[in-house]
Simulated scan of single mutants.
Amino acid sequence: MKVTVLMIAGLSLVVACTSSPRKGPGASGRDGGDLARPTRSQGLSAPPVALLFVSMDSNHDHFVSREEVDNGIDLEWRALAGPDRVHQSAVQMSNWAAETLGDLNALPSPIAFDSNLDGTITASEFRIRLIDIFVFPPAANKPEAYPKEPVFQPGPSLASLWASAGLIRTDITRGFNGLSGAADGAPLDLHLRLQSLSTDQQPLSRYAVYVWHADAAGEYSVFNRPDTNYLRGIGITDQRGRVNFRTVYPGTYRGRPPHIHFEVYRSLDTLGLGVAPLIRSSILFPEMVSRSVYTRNPAYADSLDKYAALRFQLPVLNPTGDKRAVQLASTSASSNSTLRASLDIFINAEE
């Protein structure tokens, strides 16, 4: 069975952005549920070790499985040690990092690999330390039903009102249907995959997925910002249950860590008719990624202040012991300028 890696625990992102953050009136605390593509001066770069793990996606499905991680680490050890070498020194490790990843400091300190402190690094120590960089939550070995969230605003979703007015789109960074506005922030490619919770875990094809989230300042279009309707969109899953969106990393507001809301409908027709979604929930993000983006990108200045004051709901700090780990998106760098977040969502399609 394929196991999806839900986060990279060692990822540290450096964001460079020359634009100034928009100062708004502040978030109201509502979830907003019921803009131009970022300039070339914006961007973020990840340490080479993050890109090393991304390169292990051998079938290019935007999900790094445990099998792909294992195979990738084996290939890296052979590249480092050669077929006849059993041990490597710290100097050899650093030289390999510089040659392969372009940076002597691309990996954790070589001392961190040498678990028995004997001055050399074995294949086993190399594997164990790299695996530790990944966090496999409990749901990774046994698919769990994605948790639903209560609907505090009953009635038809905004998605049903705008489904035929331009809301079906991949790039959700702009306003649509006559409204202007362009979302500032760190570019994010969001990759979701819907699967049935049944024993065969069949992909859910032709399902409609509505996503929406706060902007870099922690404000929702339409509700906090009635002048625009960006950061909202509907996508239709393909034959493999996949749907993708181009957006920006979500900001936050007082009370909740950063998240992306979503609703899943059995089809676009049922969504348009105002039928209740099969599930309404949200996607969460690794704490270290959020903190790095908010700290280093000026567009998130308001969100950084709110993030530091979170009290009502804390981020997921211990994925192996937090039931919300199933909601954590695997977040890494797809290039030097864009983040990539991927998530498997298991739902009961028979409900």
Rank of each mutant, 00 (worst) to 15 (best):
P25S: 14
A16C: 00
F136A: 05
E219A: 10
P150A: 14
I236H: 02
D74Y: 07
M1T: 04
G82M: 05
F113L: 04
P110D: 10
A46P: 00
S292M: 01
G274N: 13
A123Q: 14
S332E: 14
A16V: 00
L44Q: 02
A276I: 06
K23A: 15
S330D: 05
G166K: 12
I260L: 12
L273Y: 08
I236T: 04
N116F: 12
F262N: 00
V3P: 05
L273P: 04
T122Q: 04
M288L: 08
F126N: 00
T173E: 06
G119I: 14
Q88N: 01
S41R: 10
P25G: 11
D103N: 07
I236Y: 06
V243Y: 05
S290A: 08
D132P: 00
M1L: 06
L194D: 00
R280W: 01
F113M: 05
S20I: 13
P277E: 00
F176D: 01
V151T: 10
E149A: 06
Y307T: 02
E99L: 15
E67V: 10
L13R: 07
T122L: 03
A183Y: 05
D269H: 08
N336D: 00
P298H: 09
R240K: 14
G43A: 02
F134Q: 02
A299T: 02
T338S: 03
A97S: 07
H259D: 08
N59L: 09
N336K: 00
V5S: 07
I234G: 01
R127H: 12
T18P: 01
R311Y: 11
N229E: 05
S180T: 15
H62T: 14
Q88G: 01
P203G: 04
N59C: 12
V326L: 15
L104C: 10
